[in-house]
Nucleic acid binder design. Structure first.
Length: 313
DNA sequence: CATACGTGGGT
DNA sequence: TACCCAAGTAT
């Protein structure tokens, strides 16, 4: 989680006008589900044709990447690699190449490794069990719960940044949640979670959608919110964050940008690239070498012959 | 628990 | 224009 959020968080910032004990969780769920019924986006991984595998692909791509940028690559991946085994049988470098400019390319590598594990250890089927999912590369607590919930309709608290923000505002009256999921977040999530699995799964996706479309981080559209009357933050007058200033995120000139530049060169080349061709595109030679070494260490790049580099096989 | 890890569009 | 931040995970 970005450090700038840590500076934003203040545990004592809770300003609760509505008595938390009086919060009608069931009503919040019911109203959110009704809203979702007409307001939900028609996303391809939510359609009936979606498979556990295509849903799993979407979850990897959506880790820290906006929906709008995922739509096209997702479609291409699903057509090209319709099963975990299909991806596992392809070179991991092709997964990295097809990842394109989605960002955080290690996700492509992890998804390829997860596909390999599914092919080899799980009869080619995406596991439905949360704890088994957790054992796959690139699958953390959020993604495991999301796959189990969305693909298999299991009952799980699915805690993403949207849900935590919605919960925090409605129940605690604070503008922003903790920088990362806490035990308190989970406990709160349990309070909302319907007892019937199918309803719980629908609540999971609906509460995420509420956070993505209405209860947004920057400019929440409270006038269109179906649970406004239950919201502690709204009742308190939507108090703005008045804590310490956030630490700006910089990208220009960072190792991240440098890694991205080097990997971009390999993605666009069908053949291995000579060291000089690779490194000359970055002004800071030392930094470029450091980035190259870290890409090698991560397995995003391999040494191919004499002083040449390529995507992994 | 803090930090590293890409990228691009919204405000 | 800067800055914010988006369905997180691994270390």
């Amino acid at each position: 989680m970005p450090r700038r959020w840590a500076a934003r968080f203040r545990p004592t910032a809770t300003v609760s006008i509505v008595d938390p004990a009086a919060l009608d969780h069931a009503a919040v769920v019911t109203k959110t589900l009704r809203w979702y019924g007409h307001a939900a986006r028609d996303l391809p991984w939510r359609r009936s044709e979606a498979t556990p595998w295509s849903i799993m692909i979407s979850e990897f791509m959506l880790q820290q990447t906006p929906v709008a940028r995922v739509l096209q690559p997702w479609q291409q991946w699903v057509e090209r690699w319709p099963t975990p085994a299909a991806l596992a049988d392809a070179p991991s470098g092709e997964a990295v190449r097809a990842w394109g400019r989605l960002g955080y390319p290690r996700r492509a590598l992890r998804l390829h490794r997860a596909a390999t594990a599914i092919r080899d250890d799980h009869d080619g089927e995406v596991p439905a069990d949360y704890h088994i999912l957790l054992g796959l590369p690139g699958v953390g607590s959020y993604t495991a719960a999301a796959i189990a919930s969305f693909a298999y309709r299991r009952r799980h608290v699915v805690l993403d940044t949207n849900v935590r923000r919605v919960q925090t505002r409605v129940a605690l009256g604070a503008a922003y949640p903790h920088p990362s999921a806490t035990a308190a977040d989970r406990a709160l999530g349990e309070e909302f979670l319907p007892s019937k699995a199918e309803r719980a799964a629908r609540w999971a996706v609906a509460s995420m959608e509420l956070g993505a479309l209405i209860c947004t981080a920057r400019s929440p559209r409270c006038d269109a919110c179906p649970v406004r009357s239950h919201c502690s933050w709204y009742a308190a007058g939507r108090p703005d964050w008045d804590g310490p200033p956030r630490i700006a995120q910089r990208y220009e000139g960072t190792d991240r940008q440098c890694r991205g530049a080097l990997l971009g060169i390999l993605r666009s080349s069908d053949d291995a690239v000579g060291a000089e061709d690779l490194l000359q595109h970055w002004p800071d030679r030392r930094q470029a070498e450091r980035a190259r070494d870290s890409l090698l260490a991560d397995g995003l790049m391999i040494v191919a012959g004499d002083d040449r580099y390529a995507l992994p096989g």
